[in-house]
Structure formats: structure tokens, C-alpha cells
């Protein structure tokens, strides 16, 4: 079957089998390997991407179901050479160790801050509760998201420059 969707702002079209899962469509048909594929059972959440701005587990969505919709992956977080505050936050607060859960965590975090720019720690923990960090680095993931909340996009650049100057 033929599918057409927007991925990170670009329209893509492919002929696929209906049984292709979105995670494999992104990785294998489009070469966007930033979206990781983990448990296959919608438990681990490493495959989280956004469909129409909402985080979903892409191992449990058919690519066919995303036909006509807008998908955003970790590759779409950086815009015009500027990293998203979420990405900056994960760097500032050491939000990753092995990095396997990181793309999914960041897409969920971005969706959370888009809706709720100042979440409490409890709200952050609830938002990522369907995702597993097998390094168990949850405390730093929460702090990374808090950093991003404290440094929204319009000030992220200047903050980075300030700190570069200090360094």
C-alpha cells in the first residue's frame, strides 16, 4: 500500500506492506535510526515518537495508521542547527548514560513541555512512567527536563553562550 506522511516537516511517500510498524518504517524505510526499537511489546517506550504532537509508542502503531499524519522523531528536535532545550537539558544534567532510552524520553519531554511549560517533578515522573531507563538514571532524566523547563527555546541560545563564555 502507499503511505504519505510528514516526518520532521518533510513529506515522505513509500510503498509498504500494511504490517510494517511505524518504528521499522522510520528506521528502515527512511533511515531515521534515532528512533530506537526495544521491547516490541509497548512496555519500554524507547520507540516513542510524536504523531500530531502526541507521544506514541511507534512499535505499536502501524505505519499505515500514520498515513496522512505528522510524525516527529528525535532527528526533528534540532532546528536550523540549534538543539532543542530538551536536548541541551540532557547534556547539562547528564540525562543519559547508555543513551538507548534517550530519544523516546526526549520526545515525551518535548510534548510535556509544549502542553505544560512548568511541570512539577511529579508531573514529569508521571509523563515518563511508561518508559524504562535500564541504566536507572531517572533522577538525572527528571533534572534534564526541569532544566529544559527553566530554559525555554528563546533563551536557550543565550544561556549556552553565557556558559561558553564562563567556561
Amino acid at each position: 500500500m502507499h503511505v504519505t506522511m510528514t516526518v520532521n516537516g518533510d513529506e515522505v511517500e513509500r510503498d509498504i506492506e500494511p504490517r510494517v510498524l511505524l518504528v521499522h518504517f522510520l528506521r528502515e524505510n527512511l533511515g531515521l535510526t534515532g528512533t530506537h526499537w526495544g521491547c516490541d511489546t509497548s512496555n519500554c517506550g524507547t520507540c516513542v515518537v510524536q504523531i500530531d504532537g502526541e507521544p506514541v509508542k511507534s512499535c505499536t502503531v502501524l505505519a499505515a495508521m500514520a498515513d496522512g499524519h505528522a510524525v516527529r522523531t528525535v532527528e526533528g528536535l534540532e532546528v536550523a542547527g540549534t538543539v532543542d532545550p530538551i536536548q541541551q537539558g540532557f547534556m547539562e544534567e547528564h540525562g543519559l548514560q547508555c543513551g538507548f532510552c534517550t530519544p523516546g524520553m526526549m520526545l515525551t519531554a518535548r510534548a510535556l513541555l509544549d502542553e505544560n511549560p512548568h511541570p512539577s517533578e511529579g508531573e514529569i515522573r508521571e509523563a515518563i512512567s511508561g518508559q524504562i531507563c535500564r541504566c536507572t538514571g531517572y533522577a538525572t532524566i527528571v533534572r534534564s527536563i526541569q532544566w529544559a523547563a527553566d530554559h525555554p527555546a528563546e533563551t536557550a541560545d543565550s544561556t549556552l553562550e553565557d556558559e561558553d563564555v564562563k567556561a
Binding site: 502526541e54 507521544p55 506514541v56 509508542k57 508521571e126 512512567s129
Partner: peptide, 9 residues
């Protein structure tokens, strides 16, 4: 029910 991401769908 499940987790927040699954509840989106």
C-alpha cells in the same frame, strides 16, 4: 490504565 503514552492511543 497502562501508562500515559498508551493512554494517548
Amino acid at each position: 490504565v497502562a501508562d500515559p503514552i498508551v493512554r494517548n492511543r
